[in-house]
Simulated assay, not measured.
Amino acid sequence: MLKRIHHAAIICSDYERSKRFYTEVLGLAVIAENYRAARQSYKLDLQLPDGSQIELFSFPNAPERPSYPEARGLRHLAFAVDDVETCKAHLEGHGLAVEPVRVDEHTGRRFTFFADPDGLPLELYEG
């Protein structure tokens, strides 16, 4: 029935800052960008190399996402990468704080976490 995840939707607090982060730092390609005047909202469609997408939204006065302690709902968004250490160095080169690389005790794969400009937890997962 289900084939794959098509997209994840993210609501940001500062559209231009988040747009730069997802396109310039993470390197996602812009598919479409639309301003929806009735909602005072931008919708930016971004694509990863495998075709999966992120929809980046801006809404006026959107409430903060509860994170710590972790709230119910989506816990984090994970990106598959070939080399966690190389990607970690790239992010740190852009001034981002990245957690130490860990090894998944069940799969033996390396991973790490960092955050987007609004504190949304993002993961790099090797493999």
Rank of each mutant, 00 (worst) to 15 (best):
L2W: 09
R4P: 00
H7T: 00
A8L: 03
A9R: 05
A9D: 07
I10S: 02
I10C: 03
C12A: 09
K19Q: 12
K19S: 05
K19A: 03
T23P: 02
E24R: 13
L26G: 07
A29W: 06
S41N: 04
L44E: 04
L44D: 03
Q53I: 00
I54L: 08
E55S: 04
E55R: 06
L56M: 09
F59A: 13
N61K: 11
P63C: 03
E64L: 10
P66A: 13
P66I: 15
P66M: 13
P69T: 12
P69I: 14
A71F: 11
G73Q: 01
R75T: 13
L77F: 11
A78S: 08
A80W: 05
A80T: 03
V81H: 01
V81C: 06
D82F: 15
V84W: 08
E85G: 10
A89N: 14
H90D: 13
E92D: 12
E92W: 04
G95W: 03
L96E: 04
L96Y: 07
A97C: 12
P100D: 02
V103T: 08
E105L: 05
E105G: 09
E105I: 02
T107F: 05
R109T: 00
T112M: 07
T112G: 00
T112N: 04
F113V: 08
F113K: 00
A115W: 05
D116S: 09
L120H: 15
P121L: 00
P121M: 05
L122S: 05
L122W: 00
L122R: 01
E123W: 10
L124Q: 12
Y125T: 01
Y125W: 10
E126K: 06
E126I: 11
G127T: 03
